[in-house]
Design a protein around this nucleic acid. Structure first.
Lengths: 135, 135, 135, 135
DNA sequence: GTGGTCTAGACCACG
DNA sequence: GTGGTCTAGACCACG
């Protein structure tokens, strides 16, 4: 299955962030499996109509987080999953995105049950797409 | 109940964003009712020890989004609630932050139950601060 | 004490790496204490005669590793020390630099005792310069 | 004893570097004696499943550093040991990798004893592979 | 003034 | 052909 990325230039979210997030999501969903090769920096840049440095920046961040690995001269591949961060650091990072999510939901005037249902829907969606539980 | 804001300078979240979010949340939670007066730009800046341009920027955004309104020469007040976003737009915005949250959580290797518990904890935390359920 | 950095353009080590390494070393040695401000991206770039993007790249990496933190519009500061990486990840990273060190030493024909003495000398040097043990 | 090389494609260390380092170490450790013949570029490339240009590049570097010598039409042999670097240069090079190693270890929050133990472990590992102490 | 992002284009290292 | 680094220069967000 070809990696399907789309970036929005009008967003406050920088382009390289959008790439990072979408690749991570593809890995989480099982669209990309361990060992799969990603498009080359230049090929992806051309496809997304962005500068190659922007793609490279996204790939560097993904490498640093252990999601992908770069084999010199050969390309970029999905890495074997490994735990990089301490429990404290993982909690710190979870808190950041949790805050962003719940605040935005509350500001948009969704109530607690709507938030719960949204979460359940999304978890089901992910589990359905190739993620074996007990991962 | 006086508006209780606290900003953190070390955060990646810009200060003006923190102000906007906390005011919005206070309105949603009922800590601030329609017609309540907010502190003046300069008073709030002084209290929070931030630049007054930063507070002004936050207020501009809140006015633009219809949360507060400025009455010339009198001050800034909580506006009558009006829905700005269509249902579809609200859902679209929720989906964005929901995706960001759940995929980050999964990448960080939290399982479904940990995610649910994190959500419950955060909701409880918010409800504790004056928000009655079903608000 | 002003931060004293020097980069060598002829090295195989990229410029941004040299900056990262030297800042880390300065933090380790106590030349930079928690809360100290680093030179601005542009000021440092000018001083080192390199492009500001190169300095920015170094700072981004230091932020990602939790060594420094960026306060928007104010500058970059030495962060409070926190453990980010798991034991396994720390070991993995140690192994990489350990291999590089010992291989090079062996290739240069230093014997085991010379290597031990070099390590002792360096540890003493670091402990003498503001690093309290039990850190 | 046949030259025992193993390269890891996933490493950040380029393949040609891995070959260079391992050959040098084999010479230092006595696994390869003066006058011993090395496998041909193509034979080694085939054995290691790498591009022959990669092996050639490694051999060029080893020749340049005086570790091996190529006898036209006959093959590649371990050269008579000669010191290329002055004492000062050897110390300078050791200092560079020593700094990199110790400061990374300290940043990763390993204490002095852990560093010592890591060194001992690595030295033992190397000595186990045919290097007699005092070599 | 501060850092962050992006582009266009170049050159290098590796295989 | 692959990724990595760097420059010069631009524009944006924040305070």
């Amino acid at each position: 299955m070809a990696l399907d990325l789309h970036i929005s230039t009008g967003s406050t979210n920088p382009i390289y962030r959008q790439i990072v997030d979408q690749v991570r999501r593809a890995v989480v969903c099982g669209e990309l499996a361990v060992g799969d090769q990603l498009p080359s920096v230049r090929a992806l840049a051309e496809r997304l109509l962005v500068n190659h440095n922007t793609v490279a920046k996204a790939y560097v961040e993904l490498v640093r987080d252990g999601v992908i690995e770069s084999r010199h001269g050969r390309g970029v591949f999905v890495a074997k999953k490994r735990s990089i961060y301490t429990k404290a650091e993982r909690n710190r990072r979870l808190e950041t995105v949790l805050d962003a999510f719940v605040s935005e939901a509350v500001i948009l005037d969704f109530d607690d049950d709507e938030i719960r249902r949204a979460i359940e829907r999304k978890l089901k969606e992910l589990n359905g797409r190739g993620r074996e539980d007990g991962t």
